[in-house]
Amino acid sequence: MSQFFAMGGYAFYVWVSFAVFFIVLLVDALAPLVRRRRNLRELRARMARSDARRRPGSNA
């Protein structure tokens, strides 16, 4: 097992490469999910504001 992680002495180069690959793609995969939720939240806030303007007195 430790032989596997040693990668014949190239452990640093091999594992950092694989880490970069997965970390970059993980960030790439999460970014649009976060963006979509944020956009929907902002849209809901805008809709609530315009609703409140249309019906003064209600605290929607």
Binding site: P32, N39, R44
Partner: peptide, 26 residues
């Protein structure tokens, strides 16, 4: 997978005035 997630996020932003996006938001 990544492209489709991104297109969905982009459409929510650019089509936010449309009824179908408002329905999703609600």
């Amino acid at each position: 997978a990544s492209l489709f997630a991104r297109v969905r996020a982009d459409l929510i932003a650019t089509e936010s005035g449309k009824d179908w996006v408002r329905a999703i938001a609600l």
